[in-house]
């Protein structure tokens, strides 16, 4: 891999229409198989006290897609991210239950520490932004690169070894900062940025390593509307240039606008999956799993592209199927909950 350019991956659907066509053939059921998954997860659970914060049987994330993971607050999305990225450890399976397994690009990430996960090309951001406030924006960016061998203690004191690399990385950082409209701020302390700018910085920093997949935990939370637009643009751009995106969000508008696939989580479990239009349109799903009174105002959807609308229309049948399954599942969850109390 070169420093700035990702190699063209023949397996990656750079063409979004192609990708959506493939996803169109996927069953809209929780845990359904994808034609070309970059990430597969099996039987992962995490309990806090008595509560199962995460209890996911199976999930596949399509390579080259923007997949949204939605669910109400406390659904377990962040915990799920933590588990996948090595920031938390899943529970040991109890009595005969299957062992937790998850693979990224065919490589098992079970009991892999967080930094190693990042090194495999799966980089995450945090819900509560972790900009390194007492460092400059540029230093934040440089830290994101995984190419600088001057980070090794044995080489650090001899600057001629790493100076050349530093220039290359700096150029890459400037390019990214420019894209994220942060270039003028490069010498400012990250602590002086606005909340939205910090989110952008955190994302740009994560991209410094050219990850194969980026996992964004609520990238739009607390970002003002003007910035949100450009953030959405960035995310789509990322996908188009070869980075699979998995992101957590609870704002439905955002989700249906940019995602290719939506996974719904509630009380630790996957309760629905599907193309955004379908999952979105299903008010029962929304009410049951988001518990929020999602407003009906779908009017300002001028941004939604034509293809997408047609695709949604074509899949009413499958939607009904999904609805049924989801409703049945929801019922069983409710029953279990009733037992628990």
């Amino acid at each position: 891999m070169t420093d700035n350019q990702k190699l063209i991956d023949p397996d990656y659907d750079y063409d979004r229409a192609e990708l959506r066509k493939k996803l169109g053939a996927v069953d809209e059921l929780p845990g359904s198989a994808k034609p070309n998954p970059i990430l597969t997860v099996d039987s992962i659970t995490r309990r806090f006290g008595g509560i199962a914060a995460v209890d996911v049987d199976h999930l596949e994330v399509q390579k080259g897609s923007i997949t949204a993971l939605i669910g109400p607050n406390g659904a377990g999305k962040t915990t799920f991210f933590n588990l996948l990225t090595g920031f938390d450890i899943p529970d040991k399976p109890q009595g005969g239950a299957a062992k937790p397994r998850w693979e990224f690009q065919g490589r098992s990430l079970v009991s892999t520490s967080a930094y190693k996960v990042a090194r495999t090309g799966m980089v995450r951001t945090f819900q509560l932004t972790k900009a390194l406030s007492a460092m400059t924006v540029m230093d934040n960016m440089l830290l994101g690169s995984q190419q600088q061998t001057g980070e090794l203690l044995s080489r650090s004191a001899i600057w001629p070894i790493w100076r050349g690399k530093e220039k290359v990385i700096r150029a890459q950082a400037e390019e990214l900062l420019d894209r994220f409209k942060l270039l003028e701020k490069k010498d400012d302390y990250a602590g002086s940025l606005s909340g939205g700018q910090r989110k952008l910085l955190e994302m740009a920093r994560a991209l410094m390593s050219n990850p194969a997949m980026i996992m964004l935990d609520e990238p739009m939370a607390g970002v003002n509307p003007a910035l949100t637009q450009s953030l959405l643009g960035h995310i789509q751009n990322l996908r188009d240039t070869g980075t699979t995106v998995l992101f957590v969000e609870h704002d439905m508008h955002m989700v249906r606008f940019i995602s290719d696939w939506v996974v719904v989580m509630a009380e630790g479990k996957l309760v629905a999956e599907g193309r955004p239009g379908n999952v979105m349109q299903n008010q029962a799903v929304i009410d049951a799993y988001l518990g929020s009174h999602h407003d009906q105002d779908l009017g300002d959807d001028a941004v939604l592209n034509e293809d997408f609308d047609t695709a949604i229309a074509e899949e009413d049948v499958e939607l009904a199927k999904a609805e049924e399954a989801v409703e049945a599942y929801a019922e069983s969850v409710r029953e279990k909950e009733g037992d628990g109390d």
Partner: peptide, 21 residues
């Protein structure tokens, strides 16, 4: 050096630095 930069990053927030590999 870049090594020192990583240290400063850790001082700020070690989880962030961990997430960067």
């Amino acid at each position: 050096s870049p090594w020192g930069r990583v240290l400063r990053g850790i001082r700020e927030d070690e989880d962030a630095v961990r997430s960067l590999g």
